[in-house]
Design a binder for these strands. Structure first.
Lengths: 227, 227
DNA sequence: ACTTCCTTGTGAACGTTTTCACATATAGCT
DNA sequence: AGCTATATGTGAAAACGTTCACAAGGAAGT
């Protein structure tokens, strides 16, 4: 690491941060919120690790990629560390999210409080079912997916969440990319193609069930689940 | 690897299989189902890799942990490989699943077709809201969570899915473990404590959104997402 | 039967991530 | 001011996972 990592919470040295580290930041954030509510002023890497089933060394190493936030002999200041991590993750702001597919999963996501709590505001709903288009779902009028191009731009959407059937997911995603969206969270159980400059993440809910099935059948040696 | 790995699809040599490998098996399974529908008899590691954005070497290595399923010069037989992987993952059978918490997420999961398609049958619903208990949700009567002990045993439940609020998740999970369930999929955004002999997996849906946020804010170098 | 082409299966090399271990720094107490 | 206890930050080592590269096996055609 050439340049210094000051305490600004920015990864100024251009070292690649691993996916796992970023996922763990989410865990730290969650634990810190609880600690803050419980009234703790500071927390050690040991305690933080314990609360998320990690190791103290892992916690310190992860944080060290972004700066030095702690005080030797004392630990980390709960409130400011939480703010710093929120800053690193970019959720110290509001993100405007559009949801595609107001079916079972989609509807559940609209009401999912954890999203809004983390700053993700679902402010547009799209579907291609004529019976749904135009109707009001939890205060949001469902739009026709065919109009996404104008409506996404108008609403200044940052992130698209895709909860449409696997059969149409690729078409929808093609359009989303054409509309200039650079971040997509996909719930359809299919591998989607997107241009290189678009971030795509998949949420595959049967995968974890399948893991459980495998573990049960094979008496798979337990290990702390990655992330 | 001491003993031979025959083509039974079992990991007979007790080498630890990584979490990532198991997750990729889910992907192979998915791709193979599509290939089968498309009428392919065989598939190469190259093609399989392409369909799930992996490398051919990775595909071959993953499969080699469990046996040799392919024919040199030809590739893998689609139908039988699909069956073999289903066998390895333990989803060539029906799993009986109970769902706890019939709220937004819970209701969506009950109707989530992908679960049943993979052999996970949600046959019991539990809640602790008196207004919900006794009512019929998609053909299943919602039970009182206080009666879980008898009802889980009676229905021979294998896996519990937890979709209750974070505030009560630990209590519910304590009871689930006491009732003898050995596999739990948790949707509550909290780190749960379970005995060593219970498999616990977490589905944290905001985590991936937070990753997208991080990527957007930091122009994070793209890399094929792990899993 | 022989040749050519293709693709698997796998040790070994490589790269990445995690863990270790310790020098260093600070708090708090006497 | 000095001492002790505590906890960070970080190079180095270890563990782990991925990719390479190639020998070996089989298909298909001549």
């Amino acid at each position: 690491m050439s340049a210094r990592n000051s305490d600004t919470g920015v990864n100024s040295g251009k070292k690649r941060i691993s996916e796992s580290t970023i996922h763990r930041l989410s865990l730290y954030l969650r634990a810190l919120s609880v600690l803050e509510k419980e009234g703790h002023e500071t927390v050690s890497s040991k305690e933080l690790a314990k609360r998320e089933k990690l190791t103290p060394a892992q916690v310190r190493k992860d944080l060290s990629f972004f700066g030095s936030f702690g005080t030797r002999g004392l630990g980390y200041p709960v409130a400011t560390l939480r703010e710093q991590i929120a800053g690193i993750l970019g959720i110290n702001r509001a993100w405007k999210v559009a949801l595609f597919g107001v079916g079972n999963i989609g509807s559940a996501l609209v009401s999912y409080k954890e999203f809004s709590r983390q700053g993700f505001q679902i402010i547009k709903l799209f579907d291609n079912d004529q019976r749904k288009i135009g109707s009001n779902h939890k205060g949001i009028i469902i739009s026709d997916a065919r109009n996404m191009h104008e409506e996404l731009a108008e609403a200044q959407i940052d992130i698209a969440v895709v909860a449409v059937p696997a059969t149409v997911a690729q078409y929808i995603v093609d359009d989303i990319c054409k509309a200039g969206i650079k971040a997509i969270l996909n719930f359809a159980p299919i591998n989607l193609r997107v241009p290189d400059d678009v971030y795509l993440r998949n949420e595959n809910m049967s995968m974890e069930l399948e893991y459980l099935s495998f573990a049960l059948v094979n008496n798979h040696a337990q290990k702390r689940p990655k992330i």
